[in-house]
């Protein structure tokens, strides 16, 4: 029996005493995705940060070596997650439950301050810019094939979020979703960063939470329909106002009086997500901050 170290609160709240049945969707060295009740939940090794609808597991071995394969039946309850065919069980009791919300009810993102360290974020991005990603959208450098495709579509996205127009946001997000390399295509990651930063900005500005959540959910749901199931799952989590620990820490560093070294350390963790995903997420954050933190529509 493996022990769960951390468990996302959203998943914990959804679990029932009796077992629910799911099915393994995909298995990677450092992630197992399980489809259950129309949603994707994820097992991650303890070294990774916690994601929405996931739990981290004490485990030294890559998941394929545990005998886990796509298609296997999974059982999920509030006490355990198991794959009987592989004799693989995770004990959820004792796991530290964490809320991964972008708009916590009580929590503050720190001092109300315009992101003065936005130039520092851009500098960090430029140091790590991947040629095949979307960094050029934020840096003004030469576009990759994918960036050239996405650039003309950004204006509609910006306008829709600025005016909190859910329908327009859905159209704009759907138009640019699924573009670029990676299991989670670059534009999907960029959108996750964009929407996450937008949530953080709107919370600081005291905007109507319902309206913000509606536009985010509409955009992310529409984008999820234009990409693969795994990337779509991340988008839906973002649309629900959730983000992984590393993104939350990054946003906290951006909006608090964090010293430069902390900003770099947080950015480094985000940049380390996936192959180019981290850089694309950071690009989305910078784009959102550049557009929406200039006082035109926020605050």
């Amino acid at each position: 029996m493996h022990k769960a170290v951390q468990l996302c609160a959203s998943w914990a709240q959804a679990l029932q005493p009796g077992p629910a049945e799911g099915r393994i969707h995909s298995v990677f060295d450092r992630a197992v995705n399980i489809e259950v009740a129309g949603r994707m939940v994820c097992l991650l090794p303890a070294q990774r940060c916690l994601y929405p609808w996931s739990c981290t597991v004490e485990s030294a071995r890559p998941f394929p070596l545990e005998g886990l394969k796509p298609g296997m039946r999974a059982e999920l309850s509030c006490s355990a997650v198991g794959v009987p065919e592989a004799r693989y069980w995770v004990d959820l009791a004792g796991a530290h439950v964490r809320a991964l919300t972008l708009w916590p009810g009580e929590q503050s993102h720190g001092a109300a301050r315009t992101p003065a360290n936005l130039p520092a974020l851009r500098e960090i991005l430029s140091e790590r810019a991947e040629r095949d990603g979307l960094c050029s959208l934020a840096l003004g450098t030469d576009d990759s094939l994918c960036a050239a495709k996405v650039r003309p579509l950004l204006g509609a996205l910006d306008d829709a979020f600025l005016t909190l127009d859910a329908h327009a946001a859905a159209r704009a997000a759907a138009a640019l979703a699924g573009c670029g390399p990676g299991l989670t295509p670059s534009s999907d990651d960029m959108l996750v960063g964009y929407v996450s930063a937008f949530f953080a900005l709107c919370r600081r500005a005291g905007r109507d939470r319902g309206a913000v959540c509606a536009v985010a959910k509409a955009a992310c749901e529409a984008a999820a329909g234009k990409t693969n199931l795994i990337s779509g799952s991340f988008l839906r989590q973002c649309g629900d106002g959730l983000a992984c620990e590393d993104i939350l820490h990054m946003l906290d560093a951006v909006f608090s009086d964090a010293p430069a070294w902390r900003l770099r350390a947080c950015a480094a963790r985000v940049l380390d997500l996936g192959a180019t995903s981290g850089a694309d997420i950071l690009t989305g954050m910078v784009l959102s901050l550049q557009k929406h933190a200039q006082g035109e529509g926020i605050g």
């Binding site: 299991l183 295509p185 693969n228 996936g274």
Partner: peptide
């Protein structure tokens, strides 16, 4: 995983006789 896809993309471009290659998920875009 994305790391594997990136490695595939880089390795294919090194192959003799391959002028260009695109590797990815089959989304509309």
């Amino acid at each position: 995983d994305s790391v594997t896809l990136m490695i595939i993309s880089k390795e294919l471009k090194k192959l003799a006789g391959v002028s260009q290659a695109l590797v990815g998920m089959g989304t509309d875009l």
